[in-house]
Amino acid sequence: MNTSRYHGHYVWRRYRRNQLWLQLKTNKVVLVSSIVLLLLTILALLAPWISPFDPTNLQQQNIMDAELPPFWHGQSDSRFVLGTDGLGRDLLSSILYGLRTSLWVGFWAVAVQFTIGTLLGLSSGYFGGWIDRMVMGMADFQLTFSSLMLAILVLAITQAALGAQDYHTWSPWLLILVLGIADWPQYARTVRASVLAEKHKDYVLAAQVLGYRSRHIMLSHILPNTLSPLLVIASLQVAYVILAEAALSFLGIGMPYANPSLGGLIGSGFEYMLSGLWWIALLPGLALVLLLLSINLIADWLRDALDPKNIGQRP
């Protein structure tokens, strides 16, 4: 019998007993934010097909179309529903592509964090000793020196060293790498705490007696039982990484200008705001807030819903 499948069932049964779905149905705020997040994700995934223009295509840009207002404004142009930015790019298309960028960075950076943090935390808790001391010492230091500050320093210095042109061909990958590597300690600490609580339980001892390898015990036996808190951290981190990416792009050291991102759009729109053209910065800002708020609301709710103290409680 495949042990990992057995554990998978076990975990799933526990989530079902948690009445996650029932709680979701009765909690209006979370239901609405889930729908909003789902919609934004679908829009972002379909961006290349549904957006009226391709913001990365210079041929579709015309400086004559620059600074057009959104549709509710008298002087708007029917081709550009949400108006255009200072270079004549369609704002709606840029926002859709920007959402795509944000979610893409958020997903991959969190995937990197999750992997690094979980592996380090598992080994730290399972093996103990000097591995544990070293990993936790690094985690303490990294946790105090925030990942955003680290990302600002690393990315800014890389940009200065490579020059803006070269830097921007690599920056999307560098961004994911830095944000992914910089924020592992939360996962590691949580996993380690769970491992310490689990590793002397009978099922782990049984697996050890049966002669399973450490790697197998850690990944297939212990990890499924530490998933709930990890899920909460990961969902909060998605929002944080998206925020960090926006801040970095706003500072001009994140996504390249040709590749629309919400933070970059806000940054370039800010210059036009001083002459009263508010939509170039604030409409992408609105999309960013909508995205972050829905993720934060869901994460907040997940934390309460997956809390063992609340298991079996009606919402």
Binding site: A246, G263, L274, W278, L282, L288, V289, L292
Partner: peptide, 20 residues
């Protein structure tokens, strides 16, 4: 919760637009 979701540069931009 809304405050966590609004980045500092967006609040700042909005304030600059309104008050300046």
């Amino acid at each position: 919760l809304l405050g966590i979701s609004v980045p500092v540069f967006l609040t700042g931009s909005l304030m600059v637009f309104l008050f300046a």
